[in-house]
Design a binder for these strands. Structure first.
Length: 230
DNA sequence: GGCCAGGACACCA
DNA sequence: TGGTGTCATGGC
């Protein structure tokens, strides 16, 4: 009986997630993320976007490009002060400079800057290695795995949590892993689907899903609890 | 002037 | 294990 209830619950979640995906796709269209020229830029962007708006990250990346230092070896050669100055627009520049240096150093150690070698690792192994690098937490690691390595993991960010709460998808706990299980246990492990789904959730989040007092009506209609309240 | 944005880490109880 | 402070700029 318990198993049956669990299965039904999972089906309901799957239906809900599929329904939401179609609504988001209809409303925002295909996103084709991540906005970057190559996998290394995806990885740098994933670190720089920590608690920052993408607009400011773009400025920092433009500075790195203009200085011709958007490679692992060039980042290693820069001093912390030089790197901090270049990424200044995206905030937390001292902390993020340390993170980028740690990341570039790790790339040399683990794969001699050869990302192809890195990406042949299985997902769990790659994730463990990334999480061991200073400055790379669950979300940044999963962004790298999904958008740079092209492996199917679901990225959980602030918007995903907020939207899950809005539509009544409540995980077993408030942890990153619990939210991730909510999506990964109910959707097929499909890189393209996870890529688009997360990108669309961010679109919706940027569009309407501010902290509750500022929440606005969204395209999810009656699926969204706050729309009912509003 | 205050709030918020595609987190992670260190520290503490 | 979970809560809190810190890191910081730029747009609205």
């Amino acid at each position: 009986m318990a198993k049956q209830r669990e299965a039904m619950t999972s089906e309901v979640v799957t239906d809900k997630l599929n329904h939401i995906y179609r609504r988001l796709l209809d409303n925002y269209g295909i996103q084709q993320w991540w906005p970057a020229d190559n996998p290394f830029q995806v990885m740098v962007g994933a670190i720089l976007t920590q608690s920052a708006t993408w607009l400011n990250v773009e400025k920092a990346i433009a500075n790195l490009k203009a200085a011709q230092v958007l490679t692992p070896s060039a980042l290693r050669k820069l001093s912390l002060a030089e790197l901090s100055a270049l990424i200044h627009p995206c905030g937390y520049y001292n902390a993020k400079a340390r993170k980028l240096k740690a990341f570039a150093g790790w790339l040399e150690e683990c794969c001699a800057d050869n990302l192809e070698k890195l990406f042949v690792l299985d997902t769990d192994c790659l994730r463990q290695q990334l999480l061991a690098v200073y400055g790379i937490g669950p979300e940044t690691a999963d962004s790298i795995i999904l958008y740079a390595a092209g492996k199917p993991v679901f990225v959980i960010d602030t918007y995903t949590r907020r939207i899950s709460d809005r539509i009544g998808l409540v995980p077993k706990s408030n942890s990153y892993a619990a939210y991730q299980s909510l999506f990964m246990d109910s959707l097929p492990a499909d890189t393209e689907l996870f890529n688009e789904y997360h990108a669309l959730l961010v679109c919706l989040g940027k569009d309407v899903c501010r902290p509750r007092p500022l929440c606005r009506l969204c395209c999810l209609g009656d699926i969204c609890r706050f729309n009912e309240i509003n």
